[in-house]
């Protein structure tokens, strides 16, 4: 079996196209030489070690990879890293302040807005954006505009309660 590993040296075959991409993540700038195929999600997770952003489907259907691009919530799995160049990227690692958790994070803890916790970073990134969009006015509105974030544990009622509270506590001007 050992010859399997040594049979092919790197460089024997044509390398896939690469590109240097400069990403600005949570206010910090990173220059990365990457395969052009690398998505923003994989760049964050595999190249920058920012594993708080989750991969739940890699097909744009679950919302676990929600990040903010220039302040708007998007899916990192269907965004090429190269497309995010020059844009301000905010991830779950970038929303807590030095003075403690973001009000939405605090409200999620108080209301038990998660169980396994895997979808939680995406839910919170979505919730922070939702409040900035002015869509936390009623439970019905919160439910509709949070429906792009699946939670298989079924924490939805508690997520709604958490967002309701964060919004009524004046979270509209929450850090974003």
């Amino acid at each position: 079996m050992t010859d399997v590993a040594s049979r092919r040296d790197a460089g024997e075959r044509p390398a896939p196209p690469e590109r240097v991409v400069t990403l600005t993540v949570n206010g910090r700038s990173y220059a990365l030489r990457m395969d052009t195929r690398v998505t923003l999600l994989d760049a964050l997770r595999d190249r920058l070690g920012l594993v708080g952003t989750k991969k739940g489907c890699d097909q744009g259907a679950c919302g676990a990879c929600t990040v903010h691009l220039d302040g708007r919530r998007v899916l990192a799995c269907l965004t090429l890293a190269a497309q995010a160049e020059g844009r301000a990227i905010t991830t779950i690692e970038g929303i807590s302040g030095t003075d403690g958790p973001h009000p939405v994070q605090q409200a999620f803890m108080e209301h038990d807005g998660f169980q396994c916790g895997f979808c939680t970073p995406g839910q919170i990134m979505s919730a922070v954006a939702l409040m900035a969009e002015g869509r936390a006015g009623s439970d019905e509105e919160i439910r509709e505009f949070m429906s792009g974030n699946l939670c298989r544990c079924g924490a939805y009622p508690n997520i709604v309660a958490a967002i309701r509270e964060a919004a009524t506590r004046g979270g509209h001007d929450a850090r974003l």
């Binding site: 691009l69 919530r73 998007v74 979505s126 954006a129 792009g148 974030n149």
Partner: peptide
Amino acid sequence: GASVQLRNM
């Protein structure tokens, strides 16, 4: 038509 995230993209 889609989730807010998809509509932003």
